[in-house]
Design a protein around this nucleic acid. Structure first.
Length: 506
RNA sequence: GGCCCGUUCGUCUAAGGGUUAGGACACCACCCUUUCACGGUGGUGAUACGAGUUCGAAUCUCGUACGGGCUACCA
């Protein structure tokens, strides 16, 4: 009987939720659900200098939009709370002190100025096994002096005493065996002067206390893994340590390097899941949601950036992803983000979606553009007709606005130069015949119109485009008779008359 | 600089010693469509380089190159 699988996503609430962050959550979530495990959201807010108003709520909102609901979180506490590290502050000191007592850590009293000085003086400065003997800490001070300093309340940190020249090996679920030499890692600060733990201590203590079985995080954490492994070994035993997987990074599309918000601004695509407004300067950064992505498409696209199920299938629903996901099939190498492909995913999902599920977002969108689409049946007919030609949600504005009012703009140049009395008469006749029609549908309309052109000895091709311009205003949109069907008899005839009037003007 | 991780079409990727190295996005051409898209068919295009192991290497080993990450009392 194996332990229940428990994974966590542990973001630091410092701003917008980045693509890479969402993908990390996603992989954690998929793994948890695939294995009937728990998915925990833990807020890592130990750096009080980086507190950002609203950032935590923003993370909840993004996860909800993506359809990722944590089993345990600050909003939905389980039995391992609290779920914010700032609220767990009193927990950490005892573990740091235990390490000191066991000889695996020590108090350090160096001020940041003193460290800066050394950093400048020594090439490749690193607070490690060889340098700590020259610094001001409980290893170099006598016990009496140390206790005196401690009692005086002087600011101090607790540092991990990383041994020299010890091989640290662990198996990463994606990368296989990874080896480090302990001499390369510095004596990480575990407890800061303000009493808060650093990430290094907190992640180990909380993963232990929350019974985390698998820890997936970005590749940027790989270099500090040996420190975490050592803490695990000293505190809770390697046998209790979660299995690690370090996820590949998402890279910028051009050039090289990790994708950042700046790249999005520079290249014109979003990198945040949802709109994020920086409370400091009120600067707004657009998100995938607001730019018109469906959450299903966003999740699907992210899942495929570094993972596949081994088949040629690319379109997956969340449930399919849960069913198929395996951490071993995640790539080792980073993936460059391709906005064109992201849009393709969205287009696929819009085509796939039923008109009824698209109704709400499209209705809201139109409303924001001054169009009241209150008739649900009418709206769904329109959506069914135009969705194939919409890549992003806002495309619905151009594709459907002419269904709600006569076109504001007419592409007259497509009609006027070739206009003549014969065509004028044909459309007058069309109005007459359309008015007599009993069954108002696309097939009947097409039949009727073709008959009129035959009688008037005009090729349909000569007048089909003008008819389109009359109804739509431009050279776009679905089949012209399908549009007329949805528009209805009265409105169709009205638009033809209206346009004929326009042509009479000089 | 040091340490670690990585490297298949422009991009995302398949291929776990034997394939004409497959698919998708993008691009190009044609077809469909008397609009614009969708769709269909086809095309251009890749195993970074060098050794080795092997009858046989994209695949295993080593080296080189290139790229990335880390090198904070940030996560």
């Amino acid at each position: 009987m194996s332990k229940k699988i428990r994974v966590r996503f542990a973001p630091s609430p410092t701003g917008g939720l980045h693509l890479g962050g969402v993908r990390t959550v996603l992989y954690n979530y998929l793994f948890a659900r695939h294995n009937d495990g728990d998915f925990i959201l833990r807020i890592e807010d130990t750096d009080q200098t980086r507190f950002v108003e609203g950032a935590e709520q923003y993370i909840f909102d993004c996860l909800q939009w993506c359809g990722i609901i944590p089993d345990e979180s600050p909003l939905h506490a389980g039995e391992f709370g609290p779920y914010r590290q700032s609220e767990r502050k009193p927990l950490y000191r005892q573990y740091a002190e235990q390490l000191v007592n066991d000889g695996f850590a020590y108090y350090a009293f160096d001020t940041s100025e003193e460290i800066e000085e050394k950093r400048k003086a020594i090439a490749n400065f690193q607070y490690n096994h060889s340098l700590r003997v020259h610094m001001k800490n409980s290893l170099t001070l006598t016990i009496t002096d140390t206790n005196q300093l401690l009692a005086s309340g002087i600011p101090h940190v607790i540092r991990l005493k990383i041994p020299a020249n010890e091989e640290i090996v662990f198996t990463d679920m994606i990368r296989g065996e990874v080896r480090f030499n302990s001499s390369q890692t510095d004596d990480k600060v575990l407890l800061k002067a303000d009493g808060m733990p650093t990430y290094h201590l907190a992640v180990v203590v909380d993963d232990y206390l929350m019974k985390i079985t698998h820890a997936f995080r970005g590749e940027e954490w790989l270099p500090s893994a040996p420190a975490h492994i050592l803490i695990w070994k000293y505190l809770f035993g390697l046998e209790n340590m979660p299995q690690w997987a370090h996820l590949p990074l998402i890279l910028k599309p051009d050039g090289n390097g990790k994708l950042s918000k700046r790249d999005g601004d520079r290249l014109g695509f979003p990198v945040f899941a949802m709109n994020w407004t920086d409370p400091k300067n009120s600067e707004l950064t657009k998100g995938f949601k607001e730019l018109g992505f469906l959450p299903e498409a966003f999740v699907n696209m992210l899942a495929m950036l570094g993972w596949n199920d081994g088949t040629v299938q690319e379109i997956f629903s969340m449930n399919e992803l849960i069913e198929k996901f395996s951490i071993e099939r995640v790539h080792k190498g980073g993936a460059k983000f391709d906005y064109e492909k992201a849009k393709w995913f969205n287009h696929e999902w819009i085509k796939k979606a039923g008109p009824e599920s698209l109704r709400k977002p499209v209705k809201d969108l139109l409303y924001r553009h001054g169009i009241n689409a209150n008739d649900d049946v009418y709206l769904e007919k329109i959506i069914r007709l135009v969705k194939d030609r919409c890549t992003l949600l806002p495309d619905f504005i151009q594709q459907s606005s002419y269904f709600f009012s006569t076109p504001e703009q007419y592409d007259l140049s497509a009609v006027k130069p070739k206009w003549n009395d014969q065509k004028q008469l044909l459309f007058i006749e069309t109005i007459r015949q359309f008015e007599l029609m009993q069954y108002w549908n696309a097939a009947e309309l097409e039949k009727e119109f073709k008959e009129i052109t035959a009688v008037n000895e005009i090729k349909p091709g000569e007048v089909l485009l003008p008819l389109r311009i009359m109804l739509v205003g431009g050279k776009f949109g679905p089949g012209v008779f399908e549009i007329a069907e949805v528009l209805g008899k009265q409105e169709t005839i009205h638009r033809i008359k209206h346009f004929l009037g326009l042509l009479q003007q000089p």
